[in-house]
């Protein structure tokens, strides 16, 4: 796994002091009054019901629907089950599926190798309390504030083959959004543009939380700045590193808006999320088939979510 080094690096750091022992916990429980217990139950139960009802139940229903050939019309009891046919169709006779998987992986790779490190690098620079830091932060963060649909449009103004700025300035004739060998890269530039700002901010927040005495101690020992960062700061930031990693993975899995704005995820811009949408949303209404695609996406997401939660869990045990 790619995140192994991060986890191992953490071992070098002394575990934070545990605040409660088992005994203390039991004692506190007994101290709770009846009202307190009701309050706690409500505080958890209300949001839990909302999330279960509106997210988890529909997710379960989607998994069920993936075994049907439902077209989304008519009563639920008339739905026919077709077993795993949708899944075999997805894999065997649906041409966009394989490209979509490749593009999602490519997307993940590009964000992971280029955009995320660049965002982290900028955060480290901006952590230096420079003059004008607020301006830099704002400039980098601005794309995050805009909706992705808007971003797709903004870049279209630059990329258009006949009317775009890039071709006009460089006298080139590249069909940025239309050539299926080029367009995925063009879109990833736009996506990276936004992703960098997001990561920069998350990471900056993490850096601000690092106890300055750690760095001061390293500086006293005569360690160089980069050495201090990699040996001291980076390991301490492990939770943030994990978050950044997960955000990157999830963003690349969920990547959708941009390609949808460009050409609805076709012709070189196939992504799983766009295929789900093409089939489920809109007139097409291939609910069963689309749900099978969605289930594949759900399972992959859940794998990453589980890895992530497992990391958090290990964190908490320390």
């Amino acid at each position: 796994m790619s995140d192994l080094p991060l986890i191992q690096a953490d071992r070098a750091v002394p575990p934070p002091a545990t605040t409660t022992s088992t005994g203390g916990r039991r004692r506190r429980l007994r101290l709770l009054s009846r009202t307190d217990r009701v309050v706690i139950t409500l505080m958890v139960l209300v949001p839990l019901l909302l999330v279960t009802g509106f997210v988890w139940l529909p997710a379960a229903a989607t998994v069920l629907l993936s075994g049907t050939d439902w077209d989304g019309i008519g009563p639920l009891n008339e739905i026919d089950f077709v077993g795993a046919r949708n899944y075999s169709d997805v894999v065997n006779i649906y041409p966009p599926f394989v490209p979509a998987i490749q593009h999602n992986l490519l997307w993940l790779g590009a964000l992971f190798v280029v955009a995320t490190p660049f965002g982290m690098f900028l955060a480290v620079l901006l952590d230096k309390e420079l003059r004008g830091s607020r301006f830099y932060q704002t400039a980098l963060y601005l794309p995050v504030v805009l909706s992705l649909a808007l971003i797709g449009f903004v870049w279209q103004l630059l990329y258009s083959r006949d009317q775009g700025l890039i071709n006009a300035v460089f006298g080139s004739n590249i069909d940025w959004y239309g050539d299926s060998n080029v367009n995925i890269w063009a879109v990833m530039v736009a996506s990276g543009w936004r992703h960098v700002g997001y990561i920069m901010l998350l990471y900056l927040a993490g850096l601000k939380g690092v106890d300055p005495s750690l760095r001061e101690a390293a500086a006293v020992d005569g360690a160089s700045e980069s050495r201090t960062f990699f040996r001291v700061v980076f390991p301490v930031l492990r939770p943030i590193n994990v978050i950044v990693l997960v955000v990157t993975v999830i963003e690349s899995l969920r990547a959708f808006d941009l390609v949808w704005v460009v050409n609805k995820g076709r012709n070189g811009l196939e992504l799983i999320s766009a295929l789900v949408t093409q089939n489920v949303v809109g007139e097409a209404s291939r609910i069963g088939f689309g749900s099978a695609l969605a289930t594949i996406m759900l399972v992959v997401s859940l794998v990453f979510i589980t890895i992530y939660l497992a990391t958090v869990m290990r964190e908490n045990r320390q």
Binding site: P58, A59, I250, F256, V280, S301, I305
Partner: peptide, 10 residues
């Protein structure tokens, strides 16, 4: 983190 489009129909 779940993909929203996937949950639309239910």
């Amino acid at each position: 983190l779940l993909p929203q489009q996937a949950l639309l129909i239910p």
